[in-house]
């Protein structure tokens, strides 16, 4: 069951390391930089095939494939995912309605073996997604005000200038003590992000490996999260991405969860 408790999240990875083509020549503070990263155009709706590859320290791999749909409906972001593999989760579906306000997300899971749609708690932000190295928050469900953001420095890597921003959670009991993100100064593209555990030791590194502009929207095609303490990693790859294809609102319903692809 637990492997099937998700957030809207995978789409939102795009937001976390979102891109902004607006080149800026002015000074920003840490919060403004992160806000620029978060607030970018992602289109009215998106469809994609997602492949998640989990690699353990011995190099053995497990692969999960998902078909996902997302649509922005006013102040509500609705998403639905259909699990294609592995076989024990095949035809399982997950739907989430996320709100711009403080209202808690609504989440449901349809389990084909039980033939039942169950409402599940959204109180699992620190849980790992399907046994991967990504938590729900890592995948983008975190809000701007959940952390205090400080611009540490500007840094040049391979001839590209980056803002280096440190974000410290407001909640002292949060699973990370801090994160540090490298943001491209010209277009606000994230390059990498470091996650530190409660002892302030480096725990994980997220790297963006491939981006592509689709229908005028920048999309992260491939990323990798590596747990440097346990030496295992997870890569996420998006294929067949469609933006603004005119998805119907009725796609995000219990009817479709139960019908499947």
């Amino acid at each position: 069951m637990r492997k099937l408790q998700f957030t809207t999240a995978l789409f939102a990875l795009i937001f976390v390391f979102g891109l902004n083509t607006e080149a800026l020549a002015q000074n920003y503070n840490g919060k403004q930089i992160i806000e620029k990263v978060y607030n970018r155009d992602t289109g009215d709706d998106q469809t994609s095939d997602l492949t998640m590859t989990l690699t353990n320290k011995n190099g053995a791999q497990r692969i999960r494939t998902i078909k996902q749909f997302k649509k922005v409906l006013g102040t509500v972001d609705k998403s639905i995912m259909f699990f294609i593999s592995p076989s024990d989760v095949k035809n399982t579906s997950f739907m989430s309605w996320a709100y711009d306000s403080d209202q808690t997300d609504d989440q449901w899971i349809y389990l084909p073996a039980l033939k039942k749609t169950k409402r599940i708690s959204s109180d699992s932000k620190s849980d790992y997604f399907m046994g991967s190295d990504f938590t729900y928050d890592d995948l983008g469900d975190r809000k701007l005000e959940d952390d205090t953001h400080e611009l540490l420095r500007e840094e040049t890597l391979n001839g590209v200038d980056y803002y280096v921003v440190e974000s410290i959670p407001v909640d002292e009991d949060y699973m990370y003590s801090k994160t540090i993100v490298w943001v491209n100064t010209s277009n606000f593209i994230g390059l990498k992000k470091e996650f530190y555990d409660e002892d302030e030791d480096l725990l994980k590194i997220l790297s963006i490996e491939d981006i592509e502009k689709i229908s005028g929207i920048w999309v992260i095609k491939r990323s990798e999260m590596k747990n440097v303490q346990k030496n295992h990693k997870t890569s996420i790859e998006l294929n067949n991405v469609q933006i603004n294809s005119g998805l119907s609102e009725s796609k995000f319903s219990e009817r479709m969860m139960m019908r499947g692809l």
């Binding site: 808690t104 609504d106 169950k118 409402r119 599940i120 708690s121 959204s122 109180d123």
Partner: peptide
């Protein structure tokens, strides 16, 4: 019925 209240279903 089913509803969520502060993280509890």
């Amino acid at each position: 019925f089913s509803t969520e209240i502060k993280g509890i279903v």
